[in-house]
């Protein structure tokens, strides 16, 4: 069931970069690309749980700060040769404000 929550403005996130949103269902990393595209992922690297919000953002990807896995922001998939997925969180931007949908499945999709 959709449960959209406003979490802040696009300019609140460094460009390119990321901020953390604490939720009752665990931390969520919200990313902003140089093109102002916004993405959200559960803040757990599929490798060993590294905090993706602390990674370096480039293109639509983030490099995990712990062991340099590269994760696609669109779908949370690790870039080959690594395999795994950080569960993506639905996100919308309306009028410069960012909304995320929580209350959906929180387990990692697979991997």
């Amino acid at each position: 069931m959709a449960d959209w929550i406003e979490i802040g403005r696009v300019e609140d996130i460094p460009k390119p970069g990321s901020r953390l949103v604490e939720t009752g269902k665990g931390p969520i990393a919200v990313f902003r690309g140089t093109d102002d595209a916004i993405f959200a992922l559960h803040n757990r690297c599929p490798h060993r749980g590294g905090p993706l919000s602390e990674g370096l953002v480039h293109g639509h990807k983030v490099t995990c700060p712990l062991h340099n896995w590269v994760i696609e922001l669109e779908n949370g998939e690790a870039v080959a040769p690594d395999v795994g997925c950080a569960a993506p969180v639905p996100v919308r931007v309306a009028d410069g404000r960012i909304w995320i949908e929580i209350g959906m499945r929180l387990e990692v999709a697979h991997g």
Binding site: I5, I7, G8, D12, I13, P14, R19, L20, V21, E22, T23, G24, K25, P27, V30, I102
Partner: peptide
């Protein structure tokens, strides 16, 4: 300062 605080806390 943004580095050290979450953007938001919800739930």
């Amino acid at each position: 300062a943004h580095e050290f605080q979450p953007l938001r806390k919800v739930g």
